[in-house]
Amino acid sequence: MALPAAQPAEVLRAWQKDDLYEKQLAESLARLMPSHHAPKAAPLSSVLYKFFTTLKELQTLGEEYSGIVQVDETYHKLPTFTSRLLSILLSAFGENLTRKILRKAEKSVEHSTALRPEAQNTFLVIIKAVNNMVPQIESIHRALSYIKGGPLQIGKSITAIDYVHVRPAAAAYYAHLRLLGIVTLLHAFISCGQSIYQAKKNMDLMRDFPNEVDSSKSCVACLEEMLQPCVLHCGHIFCMNCCYGALETCALCRTPFTKNTVVPLMNYYPGQK
């Protein structure tokens, strides 16, 4: 007879406990690491914490506190070693990996000679919009977990890992948790809608003014408010962070440029008349 599926409230309690311990471990690791490697402490602490618990077929401290155990899709067996390892790596590095893939796709589109400039602009804006929506995808998954149950981490859902109770739950389904899930879901959808609207706005801008200086208050490259505008030798204007950052070709006309040809506009404000 299969054990009962874990209630969303118990899964949330376990996740909160484990997140607290992982953050404490990350703070300790950050003090031992050089300052320029300190950002790596958080994913490393997550991997170490799960290595000595989940990978050893043991409950984490949070799971033990809530009385839940990880199981595979049959609800009768522990997840395989491969599933557990993959879920740990996805939880620790999944977002960074996704962003790297998107950046690589963006560079491939920028340097593509097979695409027309209009198509390049469209693809670049779509990639930027998807990149902005990455945190919202995680929020949507978490909201669905609040509403219908299941793991909070996307990595566990991808590897078909779930939870069951090994002792009676402290409480039944919490109504306020379902309400929190609905509110979180609505907020995530609104944020995604804003990103899509901004992407469409910038696509319309590039279609209407493909060869003119951008007079919008938003930078076409990063879709953010343009601060410290700079002009390229092709005549198009972007914010300083993009010109001196990852941008290597003009996002409007695809003209290559070097950092020493970028000219800051000290007394120019986008949108002024």
Rank of each mutant, 00 (worst) to 15 (best):
M1T: 14
M1E: 15
M1D: 13
P4Y: 08
A5P: 00
A5G: 08
Q7G: 01
Q7W: 12
P8Y: 04
P8E: 03
P8V: 09
A9N: 12
L12Q: 03
R13H: 10
R13W: 09
W15M: 04
D19Q: 10
Y21N: 03
K23L: 05
L25W: 00
E27I: 06
R31S: 12
L32P: 01
P34K: 11
A38S: 13
K40W: 08
P43G: 09
L44P: 01
L44S: 10
S46I: 00
V47P: 02
L48Y: 01
F51L: 13
F51E: 11
T53E: 02
K56G: 03
E57Q: 14
Q59W: 02
Q59G: 10
E63N: 03
I68C: 13
V69P: 00
Q70R: 12
D72T: 04
T74K: 03
T74G: 01
T74I: 07
H76W: 02
T80G: 15
T82D: 06
S91K: 02
N96D: 12
L97H: 00
T98F: 05
T98D: 04
I101P: 01
I101C: 15
I101M: 13
L102V: 07
K107P: 01
S108L: 11
E110N: 08
H111T: 10
S112Y: 02
A114C: 05
P117S: 08
E118T: 13
T122S: 15
I126T: 08
N131R: 15
N131F: 09
N131S: 15
N132S: 10
V134K: 08
P135D: 06
Q136F: 05
E138V: 11
S139W: 00
I140P: 01
H141W: 08
R142T: 14
I147S: 08
L152W: 00
I154S: 06
K156H: 07
A160P: 00
Y163S: 03
V164I: 13
H165F: 04
V166Q: 04
A170E: 14
A170M: 08
A170I: 07
A171G: 11
Y173I: 12
I182Y: 11
I182N: 02
V183Y: 05
T184Y: 09
S191K: 13
S191E: 15
S191N: 12
C192Y: 01
G193P: 04
Q194S: 13
S195R: 05
Q198K: 14
N202W: 00
N202H: 09
M203E: 10
D204T: 08
D204H: 11
L205W: 07
F209N: 15
E212T: 12
E212Y: 05
S218K: 13
A221V: 06
L223T: 10
Q228I: 06
Q228W: 10
P229T: 03
V231G: 02
C234Y: 04
F238P: 02
C239N: 04
C242P: 03
A246P: 01
E248F: 00
C250P: 06
C250E: 04
C250V: 14
R254C: 13
P256F: 13
F257V: 05
K259W: 00
V262F: 10
L265N: 10
M266Q: 15
Y268Q: 01
G271V: 03
K273M: 07
